[in-house]
């Protein structure tokens, strides 16, 4: 992981040296933990996630642009029974289950940044758009899967810490809320998706 962060930092610095002056980009590692009913499907904090933001400056303190991300959760549950219905056959399957959730975030969002361009800059952000959820339950060779698109919002707070002329460390916390859509495989009354993510990466540009 240290090598990865070092390579990322070097490349971010290289890119930032020639970036245009009206936008900045962030790429970050995302550690996410589920909340709400989603926890009953997979109760695990996942380190398998990353995100990319590209923001254009509207003023010295306000920027807006794309917020993209990917998070994956997966955990194993033993001795669990899952009900199923397949054509005219209904029943249940008992065994070791591997629960997996893949989620992509594709939003438009903005940030309000405090402070000057060379300072440590706290910011608050808000993004809205779509979040996908792909629930998978694997029981031996049997797979149950449910994929849905959700309308979602994601408020965030964070810090940009200057590293060099055009690069900064980007630390943020984001709460993602995907509104109910489709059915939950795990028996929840509504198929919403909520999770906190802690994001750490680099921002380049100005």
């Amino acid at each position: 992981m240290k090598q990865f962060l070092l390579v990322l930092a070097v490349m971010a610095t290289m890119i930032s040296g020639a970036s245009a002056q009206d936008y900045y980009g962030s790429i970050y590692w995302s550690v996410a933990t589920p909340t709400g009913q989603f926890r009953s499907f997979v109760n695990e904090t996942s380190v398998a996630g990353f995100g990319v933001d590209v923001q254009w400056w509207a003023s010295d303190h306000i920027s807006g642009g794309l917020v993209l991300g990917y998070n994956l959760w997966s955990d194993v549950y033993r001795g669990v029974t899952q009900q199923f219905q397949y054509n005219e056959l209904a029943g249940a399957i008992n065994g070791t289950q591997v629960h997996t959730m893949n989620s992509f975030t594709m939003m438009l969002g903005g940030r309000y940044l405090f402070g000057g361009s060379r300072d440590v800059r706290p910011f608050v952000g808000l993004a809205a758009g779509t979040i996908t959820s792909s629930q998978v339950i694997d029981v031996s060779l049997v797979r149950f899967q449910e994929t849905n698109w959700h309308v979602g919002v994601a408020p965030s707070v964070g810090l940009l810490i200057p590293m060099s002329y055009n690069s900064m460390m980007d630390l943020s916390a984001r709460f993602s809320y995907a509104l109910p859509s489709g059915q939950a495989l795990y028996g929840a009354s509504e198929n919403s998706l909520t999770f906190w993510s802690i994001n750490a990466g680099f921002t380049f540009g100005n």
Binding site: G91, T96, S140
Partner: peptide, 9 residues
């Protein structure tokens, strides 16, 4: 972990 008990009706 790959053992299963399946029932149907």
């Amino acid at each position: 972990d790959y053992d299963t008990v399946i029932t149907g009706y």
